[in-house]
């Protein structure tokens, strides 16, 4: 999978918030096999005082995808992205512009506006968006080369609320990397996203809040591999009726 010219093998992107401890986080990163971790800049950035935690993340050897979590306007997200570029020395930015503080729905208008500005400033923008096709088009027009549609509201763990919309997105944007971001609760949700032909899955709470985050990270990674293999293998279509899977030829004639 090519993300802004970088070849990435692991299809799991992992968030770094809400873990019981940095040691547990490090273990989850290792067992997930992820190559990309996201880190929120907002609060930790205060006075550049989050250095101790960041250096732990940098020691993980993963590529860091800073995010603008918690930003409620395009201007705020742009400023945060600029700070992230300084601090982490990367042009990658996961762009979140939150429209509603309770549901954490993306503000797609602010998102497109911020994406346009950031692309012009040389950023590689990973926009957290809805599954709306027109918004997706606008983001591509703005210069995004990746789309990150939600599966369900952030942190809800509800799984894919609207798989048909994601399927439509896949069909509409056949050549754009699509990463399902937010809403994954269980490995079966991640597998379903990959079966729909998504390129990758980004998740955080489902692993961080599991009883054993490292074990859940591994389960997610395996589910993502399984879903991806299944998509490539072209699964059968469901049928309305039973169809015997055993050949009838040569059945014993019991007199």
């Amino acid at each position: 999978m090519l993300l802004y010219g970088v070849d990435i093998t692991s299809r799991l992107l992992l968030g770094t918030a809400q873990y019981p401890s940095p040691a547990v986080l490090a273990e989850a990163i290792r067992s997930s096999g992820t190559e990309i971790i996201t880190v929120s800049l907002r609060r930790e950035a205060a006075d550049g005082a989050g250095q101790a935690f960041w250096s732990l993340l940098q020691h993980s050897g993963c590529r860091i995808l800073p995010n603008t979590a918690g930003c409620h306007s395009a201007a705020e997200a742009i400023t945060t992205a600029q700070m992230a570029r300084e601090l982490f020395g990367t042009t990658w930015i996961k762009l979140e512009v939150i429209g509603h503080s309770d549901t954490l729905q993306p503000d797609v208008f602010g998102l497109v506006e911020a994406a346009r500005v950031l692309v012009a400033e040389g950023f590689d923008v990973f926009p957290y968006t809805t599954d709306d096709l027109v918004v997706g088009e606008k983001l591509l027009e703005a210069g995004c080369q990746v789309l990150m549609p939600w599966g369900a509201p952030i942190g809800s763990g509800q799984g894919l609320r609207n798989p048909d919309a994601l399927r439509a997105m896949r069909a509409h944007f056949p050549d754009t990397p699509l990463i399902v971001d937010a809403g994954i609760g269980r490995p079966s949700d991640a597998a379903q996203a990959m079966e729909l032909g998504m390129d990758a899955v980004l998740l955080n709470t489902a692993v961080a809040k599991a009883g054993d985050p490292a074990q859940m990270a591994q389960a997610m990674a395996q589910a993502i591999d399984a879903g991806r293999l299944a998509h490539a293998a072209d699964p059968m279509e469901p049928r309305d009726m039973a169809v015997p899977s055993t050949p009838v030829l040569g059945l014993a004639e019991l007199a």
Partner: peptide, 13 residues
Amino acid sequence: MIESGSTRPITLR
């Protein structure tokens, strides 16, 4: 619980 060494006063948020 914030991963930060800042001692500035509590934020409004």
